[in-house]
Design a protein around this nucleic acid. Structure first.
Lengths: 187, 187
DNA sequence: CACCTCATGTAATCGGTTACATGATTAT
DNA sequence: ATAATCATGTAACCGATTACATGAGGTG
């Protein structure tokens, strides 16, 4: 139950239509909570039905017409409640680690190039985050809201840094492994 | 489509019944790919129907009786194929970061204690991983399979290290913030 | 016998993904 | 007029989660 709260946050930052929200979920909030336009429209309908948001009266009711939403007091209250509530962290779930574990049993097949490819993707993402940091958080700018947003970006940067370093380590280990097709004995 | 492959990997390491698999998914593989017993039984049924695994003939067909499975050649082949295939990394999805972003808009409410609680959880997980590393990967032991498994554990350790450090940083930032209920202006 | 645990399942629900549909606006 | 794009949706499916069901074996 996080998507509605992601949308409430986005709408509080700036009232938007469904497509505008979709665009914003391709960056910014989307960096740690992605959503497609189908999800967003469905959720906007629910939030409106629940009285947490309302369509801005812009006298264009028809299909194919832009429709913007704003957050109602009940929506803000729900977001405040949710933000402070106690929630368990979800256990890690990562396909690449699973594949490495499989490789320990059936051999490393063509996994090396995959690791290299992922390394490149993470390096690119890291570079993008660093650009955003330079652009949006120059030293000195520090309202409370800015500090919190910077903290979130910092997590993204540190996470991508972890992945690039770990993948480099993994690749160097791969280089030391026997040519392969050696599933290797397991205990 | 990763759970079936997680199960194939686990069954190759050691043929097991549904409940035994469930137990093993509470640790080991479960550290980066968790699954409940309902998921596991359903998936075992599918894998058997697809001819990737088979029940070990142990002359106990009835309900309430243990039923063990082993991987068939077709199952191993599928796992090899999947391990080497090209797969896009899933974008990050983290509720805590989302909540921090929300806090930048509606104020930090009771989020501080939540951060402290999460810090403790991650510290505990990190300690557990370190114990496993000491126990299962003493210096010197290094077959190919062991090296790969160690690599996976290393990722877990480094990830938990990242979280503990980031959370500490976040808490120190929180301490410098105004007492709160200051949603703070947003651009 | 009553009760608990072991072991294997079924059913309902929900969030996310993919594919498709449709009206309105703009460009050629 | 046609096509492309903008904008808002509907429908089907799928994996994960939660709650419940049922049989077998053992303990008091």
């Amino acid at each position: 139950m996080s998507l509605p709260h992601a949308i409430l946050t986005a709408l509080l930052e700036k009232p938007s239509s469904g497509l505008e929200l979709t665009r914003r979920f391709d960056k910014s909030i989307g960096y740690f909570w992605s959503a497609t336009h189908q999800q967003i429209y469905r959720e906007l309908g629910r939030l409106e039905a629940d009285g947490l948001i309302r369509a801005l009266p812009t006298e264009q009711p028809a299909r194919g017409q832009k429709k913007s939403y704003e957050v109602l007091p009940a929506g803000r209250a729900e977001l405040v409640r949710w933000t402070a509530a106690s929630q368990e962290p979800k256990p890690l779930r990562d396909v690449l680690l699973l594949r490495l574990r499989a490789a320990a049993v059936v051999g490393t097949g063509g996994l090396g190039p995959e690791l290299a490819r992922h390394l490149e993707l993470h390096e690119r993402q890291l570079a993008e985050y660093r650009e955003i940091e330079e652009r949006d958080f120059p030293p000195g700018k520090d309202s409370s809201a800015d500090r919190l947003r910077h903290l979130v970006l910092r997590a993204g940067i540190d996470l991508e840094t972890f992945w690039t370093q770990w993948l480099q380590h993994a690749l160097s280990e791969f280089a030391r492994l026997p040519p392969d097709n050696s599933p290797a004995e397991h205990n």
